[in-house]
Design a protein around this nucleic acid. Structure first.
Lengths: 330, 330
DNA sequence: TTGTATGCGTTATCAA
DNA sequence: TTGATAACGCATACAA
């Protein structure tokens, strides 16, 4: 920078100003400085700038598992907005190991990042709360209502309800539910939506028809197998993830039964392969990329102190009707 | 830091030393300093450290599309080693837009990252070469041999050969190939392996049986449909990606033909869904996570100047035999 | 083994 | 509108 200043015949202060607030520098000087910058192929040292300004223009994304498509889609959305707004994205893979997040928390204290987006943390409430009080944080897509922090979520209750409603409308009365791990809010909410739909439809919830899975193919297979082993198996199943829905269908097929003829299935997530699978999956599509974008937008507002209170954005899932649930008869 | 020094009754230099080279500080002093650090809950300001040391302990991963599972698996491997070795991973999504990489190149010049791993860049050779001459860079999993830069790749020729060989061993003689986009080396190599296998088997390459796809489901569908429209369709197909293999199978099924009975199919990648698909896919499994780990390891060596010459690591794919290719008869 | 002093490359404050 | 100068927080050369 001092080289540039020398060549342009000004002080380093003026060079800095030309870069930061061009309008405060006389047109003529500005030209001289820019010419010198080009001549020397000068690039500011961002490290020094960051030290001086105490900001990094970097945000941290804590993700349980980047290899999971649900999360990578959200990260895609975050990254899109980050790029647009001049932020860099630091990846924090926890590999589902909660302790790891404490390492990332240190990033804040060490001033390595300006803000953080937490995907599906299992942080204890008080820890998250303390952190959120001190630093800009957004939680998505699964957040507990018990912590005061900005969130971007899906209306999982409504989504579970709609999925179940769809099956009710198709005439099903014995509808089972294979839930996700019930320690996260999304799973609880989808289950609740399922129950609401049944009650509001005028029927009773049969708890033997509810099985807890863990979002994986094999857990869907196991849960469905258990359901099929009962004396009166369900005629339809609402699964909290597409992967589990596929596992369930595999199980159904393995018994020589057909989907949707014998048992109708609705999934959740609308993963890429849900339209390749046979039968193609009826499912609830989450606007994951969109949610990622929103999370980043909200985070930037908090970093800039534009949003003083925590904000909550709730998205709706879209029912995508395909083969696995059969056709609506009216 | 000066607070810590004061409380411990030493100079800031000693505090710094205690943190950086504990062995150069007297045991007793060390204890005092650590006690003060704990008492004040002190954390070093990494920004300042970075400025002073001119290193960031951060590496940049340029990825065409993080939402693609092939890439996110590699990133998973990179991240694993990075964490272990104290590096952070900055995500650079190009969304397949080559120009974007130039933004990331500026990160180097601005000293924001210590090194870079490029996933499947379409950078012009000279640009990449200049960059690689100046900075620590590793390219994976697709690299051109024309640039002198460290690489971690798959032996795509051998892989294509093995896949095709497998079909030859099953008795097939009219074997088609649906390639990836032929502007990348991996696709060219897999095609070459396919041709080698046929020639070495004592047969002739029929160019009407080679179609170029773009790794997507729909391109596999289209390519297969074209192959089926010829007067003498193939009895087997080797596809350069599982997605294309699934598209191809969909096309085959749509004609009322069966896989593997009428046409055998081999894919590439061993994506998660390949064992869920019906029929389950025979495919070539790339050790993507492993390759990501290796890429990061090699990069660290270059950053530390432990490896002066560029290095090349070549992995072998593993043939995973499932339903889509039928059974070997001996 | 420890302390002093300097500099890393910016930006912000103040005075001119 | 510009320049001189201090400061950001740390690491290190050198002296003690």
């Amino acid at each position: 920078m001092s080289d540039v200043a020398k060549l342009a015949g000004v002080s380093t202060a003026t060079v800095s100003r030309t870069l930061q607030n061009p309008e405060t520098v006389k047109e003529e000087t500005r030209q001289k400085v820019f010419k010198a910058i080009k001549a020397l192929d000068y690039m500011p040292n961002v490290l020094a700038r960051q030290l001086r300004r105490m900001e990094t223009k970097t945000i941290l994304v804590v993700v349980p598992n980047i290899e999971n498509n649900v999360f990578s889609q959200i990260v895609g959305g975050i990254d899109a907005v980050a790029n647009e707004r001049g932020y860099k994205v630091l990846l924090g893979n926890t590999n589902h190991r909660v302790e790891k997040i404490y390492d990332y928390i240190d990033h804040f204290k060490q001033r390595q990042v300006d803000g953080m987006i937490v995907l599906l943390s299992n942080l204890p409430d008080p820890v998250l709360q303390d952190l959120a009080n001190e630093f800009p944080i957004v939680v998505t897509p699964d957040a507990k209502a018990t912590v005061e922090v900005s969130t971007v979520t899906l209306d999982n209750v409504e989504s579970g309800k709609r999925a179940t409603d769809h099956l009710l409308k198709l005439g099903h009365r014995r509808i089972a539910h294979i839930s996700g791990t019930l320690d996260i809010t999304s799973s609880q909410d989808r289950l609740q939506g399922y129950q609401q739909a049944i009650v509001e439809g005028g029927y009773f919830v049969d708890h033997t028809l509810i099985k807890e899975g863990d979002f994986t193919f094999s857990s869907g297979f196991e849960a469905m197998s258990a359901l099929l082993n009962t004396s009166v198996p369900p005629t339809a199943v609402f699964c909290a993830s597409d992967e589990m829905a596929m596992g369930a269908i595999k199980s159904i097929k393995s018994r020589g039964l057909k989907v949707p003829d014998d048992i109708a299935v609705v999934g959740f997530d609308n993963i890429k392969f849900s339209e390749v699978f046979e039968p193609t999956l009826t499912t609830m599509a989450q606007p994951l990329f969109q949610m990622g974008k929103k999370a980043m937008t909200v985070l930037i507002e908090r970093i800039n102190n534009e949003a003083l209170e925590e904000q909550h954005f709730i998205y709706q899932a879209e029912l995508i009707v395909r083969e696995s649930c059969g056709v609506i008869f009216r």
